[in-house]
Every structure is written in C-alpha cells, then in structure tokens.
Amino acid sequence: MPRAAVPASPIRVLIAKPGLDGHDRGAKVVARALRDAGMEVIYVGLRQTPEDIVRSAIEEDVDLIGLSILSGAHMALLPRVVKLLKSRKASDIPVFAGGIIPDEDARSLRRGGIKAIFGPGASLEEIVATARRLARPSA
C-alpha cells in the first residue's frame, strides 16, 4: 500500500485560539511542530468559542485539544472548555494549552483539569513529547 510514511492510526490534535485574540504565531508554530512529528492537526484558527472548540473536537474525533491564548482571558475560557467536555461526555479528551499565562493561573488551571501549560520560549520537542504522552497514554 502506498502509505508507508503514515502510521496505522496517526494522533489527531485540534489546535484552536479561544476568544478574541489575534496572536496566532504560537498556535501556528505548535501546529507545524506536531505535523512534523507525524500528527494530523486540525487547525481551526482564531475566535473560537468554547462551544465551537468542543464541537470540532468531537466531530474530528481528536485525541487531544491544544489551546493557545495570549489575550489574558484564559481564566474565563479554558475552564469553560473543560466543563463543556464533561457535559458532552467527552472529558476523556485531554486539553493542554500555551501562551501568556502567569504561573499562579497555570497552577489553578492544572488543578481544574488542563493537563499541561507552556509559556513563551517553551521547547517544541517538549511540547511534541507531551502531546504524544497525553494523546496515547498507554503507548
């Protein structure tokens, strides 16, 4: 079969920018790094509501949701995504995030169910490794 480069079941990741936040460089850099690591990245871009994000994640059957947020609205938006996933019986889909998120907020978000959080300068290798671990915990 002519698909040697593709693993039998590639990891699928949704990358979204919640809320009104035009900073999309980080999201694009992360999307590309995950692609280069062999993952299928569904990039939905800017201005996504938590409802949009959860709907896309379910339709696309992703193994992981990645949220990029530099606007300061993370404490309002990220927990909403986690809560909505729960109410749609999809809380088995892990969520990780990155952007401008102060340490104190990051701690509280992690307690609230965001699995990992990365800030400016985070290494892409580390992000890829974390994505693999979160998407396929058994592998």
């Binding site: 480069a5 590639p10 999307a31 692609r35 280069d36 299928e40 990245v41 990039y43 939905v44 871009g45």
Partner: peptide, 15 residues
Amino acid sequence: PSSPFSGGSVLGDRI
C-alpha cells in the same frame, strides 16, 4: 494532503 516526509498534516479547511 499529508506530508510525504512526516506523514503528518495540518488540516485547515475548518477555518
């Protein structure tokens, strides 16, 4: 398309 090198892809039509 999938990348012929990594097998990965960025699927952007949803935007």
